[in-house]
Nucleic acid binder design. Sequence first.
DNA 1: GCAGCACGCTACAATATCTGTAGCAACAGA
DNA 2: TCTGTTGCTACAGATATTGTAGCGTGCTGC
Lengths: 109, 109
Amino acid sequence: MPAMKKSAVRGSRTGRPIMALLDLLGRRWTLRIIWELREDRALTSRALRTVCDEASPTIMQARLSELREAGLVELVTGNGYRLTGLGKELMENLLPLHRFAGRWSKSAQ
Amino acid sequence: MPAMKKSAVRGSRTGRPIMALLDLLGRRWTLRIIWELREDRALTSRALRTVCDEASPTIMQARLSELREAGLVELVTGNGYRLTGLGKELMENLLPLHRFAGRWSKSAQ
DNA sequence: GCAGCACGCTACAATATCTGTAGCAACAGA
DNA sequence: TCTGTTGCTACAGATATTGTAGCGTGCTGC
């Protein structure tokens, strides 16, 4: 499994991949980063910080490192960060959330 | 939109539902809770803490309150917590992650 | 009644994580 | 050389999470 060094994925000591994945995605900005890189976008770390509500560089670098270790994101020098093939696969699974978010926001209270 | 009182959803001040949703899901244990309630399971708060790596009661209650405000989870007295209709819809969108997690874990390095 | 027991939930101090600001070295134009 | 941008780091303060203890309520058995 990618990125399985000691604390790359917190908690979830069961070894079940889905738990490790849910834990990885359940960290601040992680889902957002993947979302912002959808449709083959490549963004520099600073551009990512800007689109992610001016997230702090510390945590942005930490998340990008984790995502790189996990094999979901890669750094293309001179071009910024973008999703790997695996990352795009994950993105495909997340795209339906856009439609759901619309329904969710409309279902008042 | 459900649960849009002041700080129910942190960051993401854009008002775009997808951002609010990604922010809600990007908090520790939130994804895991929804996952553990899949397939119409109903779990007590203590059972949820047990299956979620013994998460602390403080944070479990906080997450459950947020999810209830968001209309994704409900408390059935005498039966524990379970997903609402909306919550099940979200769950449907998350189920493919199980398969992805398997592929992810197999793609060494 | 009255123990036990599990429930949802809270208090509170210790710890981990995140933020905000500043700044580094390396590279690219002008 | 000067200006600007890149990826990335330091560090102190703020926020979120953990771990432990415990509350009040309702239920079951005695």
